[in-house]
């Protein structure tokens, strides 16, 4: 009986969004009379930071500071259609819609500014701080505030734009079954080091080293936050969490956090996280979805590390001490009967 160490590796290829029936999101952008921009969405920010990232995408596209963009989310009665915040789709799908809407609004804004400055709209650029100027002649400029006032009160224009992103549903080829289930994949690779006590069945994750390929990290601090938390959650899925009761009757199931286990702050594995940026061709500014895939690769990596440590393959989650012990017992029985 001993504590044995093992190392496991896993790599994943994770689709952004889903398209089994199409996967649309729409966005509307309009300016207020003071030249701030409203983005109307039906999408929900559950805390992942959707509002922040959509502000950045809209601001970058129109050419204004993010403080000039307001995100109005989650009124599905009145907002433009969105399939929702799930399937790692928010940044990619909704971001593409916001970018398209913001491009259209920017074009109207530049047309109004061109009329005010008596120049051609194609000769104009934004300075990123709230002004529009003639390329190569920045002294000839107009603020976006004044442009919006002119649009609203003199020119009768609505500085607004419509955005739509739809991945068409892909049907399997009737001969081969081939289909294109997604247009954009994020990737990750994890190396997990574990200790397994072959007397108690207890597994301790010593460290996880994660590498994630995320397209482009539009907000690097928030991407890191998602990945660090997700890595913890992956370990939690691998070793701890289940709603299933031990006995085959639901009444034996857990009803609280005493039974629904998760690693606490004292159970943390040493965690390293590296982000690789490889911009996606169809992502807004190259972004892919990193919502869910951050918590996936740790599970096979931990299972592989357990196999490396004690030679048993466990294919049921979570990998509890009991499952490890039962697998070890079965393995020993097989070895002994094989020897006899």
């Amino acid at each position: 009986m001993a504590i044995k160490r093992g190392r496991g590796v896993a790599a994943i290829n994770y689709p952004t969004g889903m398209n089994l029936g199409g996967d649309p999101s729409q966005a509307l952008v309009h300016s207020t009379p003071t030249g701030n921009f409203m983005v109307s969405l039906s999408s929900v920010d559950l805390g992942q930071g959707l509002r922040q990232v959509m502000s950045q995408i809209c601001a970058e596209t129109i050419g204004v500071p993010t403080e000039m963009v307001h995100i109005d989310t989650a009124d599905t009665d009145t907002g433009p259609h969105c399939m929702g915040t799930f399937a790692s789709r928010g940044t990619h799908r909704i971001g593409n819609a916001v970018r398209q809407a913001a491009e259209e609004a920017r074009q109207v804004m530049l047309e109004v500014a061109a009329e005010e400055l008596e120049v051609n709209a194609s000769d104009l650029e934004t300075d990123g701080t709230g002004n529009i100027q003639v390329k190569g002649a920045p002294q000839k400029s107009i603020s976006i505030f004044d442009t919006a006032l002119a649009a609203h009160f003199r020119r009768g224009r609505s500085i607004s734009g419509r955005g739509m992103f739809l991945v068409q549903r892909s049907y399997p080829d009737t001969e081969t079954g081939a289909m294109k289930p997604a247009t954009c994949y994020a990737h990750a690779c994890v190396v997990a080091d574990v200790e397994v006590d072959d007397e108690t069945g207890e597994v301790t994750v010593l460290s996880v080293k994660n590498v994630y390929e995320v397209g482009r990290a539009l907000n690097p601090a928030m991407v890191e936050q998602q990945l660090v938390g997700g890595s913890w959650m992956g370990i939690s899925h691998a070793l701890y969490e289940t709603t299933e009761p031990y006995y085959p009757d639901r009444s034996h199931g857990g009803t609280d956090f005493i039974h629904y286990l998760m690693p606490g702050p004292g159970d943390l594995a040493e965690t390293e996280t590296i982000v690789i940026e490889r911009p996606a061709a169809d992502g807004p500014y190259g972004a892919k979805g990193v919502g869910e895939m951050c918590a996936n690769p740790q599970i096979p990596a931990v299972a592989n590390a357990i196999f490396d440590a004690v030679g048993v393959r466990i294919d049921t989650m979570p990998i509890t001490p009991e499952r490890v012990l039962r697998a070890l017992k079965a393995e020993r029985g097989a070895v002994q009967s094989g020897a006899a």
Partner: peptide, 8 residues
Amino acid sequence: RCTGYEPI
């Protein structure tokens, strides 16, 4: 549920 505790 979100942070993995380490940032806290």
